[in-house]
Design a protein around this nucleic acid. Structure first.
Lengths: 209, 209
DNA sequence: TAGATTGTTAATCGATTAACAATC
DNA sequence: TAGATTGTTAATCGATTAACAATC
């Protein structure tokens, strides 16, 4: 059970977790690497490597204990803690994330949203108030918010990011199609839907001809 | 200008494109690899490698012609064609994607949505009708839809995917947290928000102690 | 014991980075 | 010409895969 996981391994852990919880529901006690690999479209040796990185291991001939694996994977994913977050930019995407609610399971709790547009300020989405953006910094500091979600247009993303960092945010989840520059020690994770779309488009073009 | 791009390179192309278009707006004619690298937080040699893979190249001492690069990158991304798509699962996330509208710029046109819940069937989101899911296959075949977007709960994702593939869809954009098995030749691109969240959670936990 | 399954060590593969040559 | 910038070839690095040993 190492401390440092590769980004690749970390990215596969949620897939394992979902499947493991399904097994748990079905009262399955042990699972083998080949079973997991099969259901997830991976190769078994990769599954073993990944699991070895986060868990204390399985038993030859028996496999891995599901309950143990669930616990270890959840710990590795950081889902054992819950963190408060703010969201900036209450447009379509921002509202969708506010409404979604499923993030709780991942340890993320959005406490408030902010927008620069007075027309939407004051609204409530899924029990979360949309506040004017000038209140952003004060609230982050007061509530000691450490995660910021950016769903603004690309033009505002950097300045919003700067404000968040200034107010104590150390992890930024960025949905704006912009590169964000941050000081060392701050993590920016950008969702890159354009990249996914590009893969789809190319596949289609190649398949069509 | 090769035909086969690595997934990594493909993933960076949208970042270049956004920046290049900004330059174009500002009437900048030439740009160097170091300028691009700087603004995107990359190293210049990587920028040159990426651009070499999609464009016929720049001029020493001058740099790359912005207009040429925009054209070549767009082509590489497959944004020169527009493809019709259907969306299945008109929940929070599904509606958000329907409303978003920004996908047009990436060559994606969502023509209709489907849902299993009669309560939402008949509604219109952003001019797009929500149809009952039993009409899915017929419509896909009739309109020759080749892209399917899955925003259902995880439990339904595989069966929806099967239906899409049966009806001629060859590229699937999957937002459900589930692994989808498909025949050879079909591309599944899964958005993995849980993986991003895991990175944020871990960073926070590490930073906190 | 034999066989299934995990875990470790080595080999391969691909992407990134470095060094340097080519060019305007 | 000199210097800046691109492009190519080689080295490094990390992740995946393969071979095989350990274990129940």
């Amino acid at each position: 059970m190492r401390e440092n996981l590769s980004t690749q391994t970390l990215g596969r852990l949620p897939l394992y977790l979902r499947l493991l919880k399904e097994k748990q529901n079905d009262a399955v006690e042990y699972v083998s690497s080949s079973a997991l690999a099969n259901e997830l479209g991976l190769v078994e040796i990769q599954v073993r490597k990944d699991l070895a990185a986060v868990s204390s291991g399985g038993r030859p001939k028996v496999g891995y204990r599901v309950s143990e694996l669930v616990r270890d994977v959840e710990y590795a994913l950081g889902y054992d803690n819950t963190y408060d977050a703010v969201l900036v930019g209450a447009g379509n995407l921002g509202r969708a994330l506010l409404s979604y609610g499923g993030f709780q399971a991942y340890g993320l709790n959005i406490v408030a949203a902010f927008d620069a547009d007075d027309a939407v300020v004051g609204e409530t989405v899924n029990g979360k108030q949309i506040l004017p953006v000038h209140m952003l910094q004060d609230l982050c500091k007061r509530l000691q918010i450490h995660i910021g979600i950016i769903t603004t247009p690309a033009e505002c993303a950097q300045s919003v990011c700067d404000k968040l960092v200034e107010s104590g945010v150390i992890a930024v989840w960025n949905f704006a199609p912009a590169h964000l520059a941050v000081p060392a020690g701050i993590l920016v994770k950008s969702e890159n839907m354009a990249a996914s779309l590009a893969q789809l488009s190319r596949h289609l073009r190649d398949a069509m001809k």
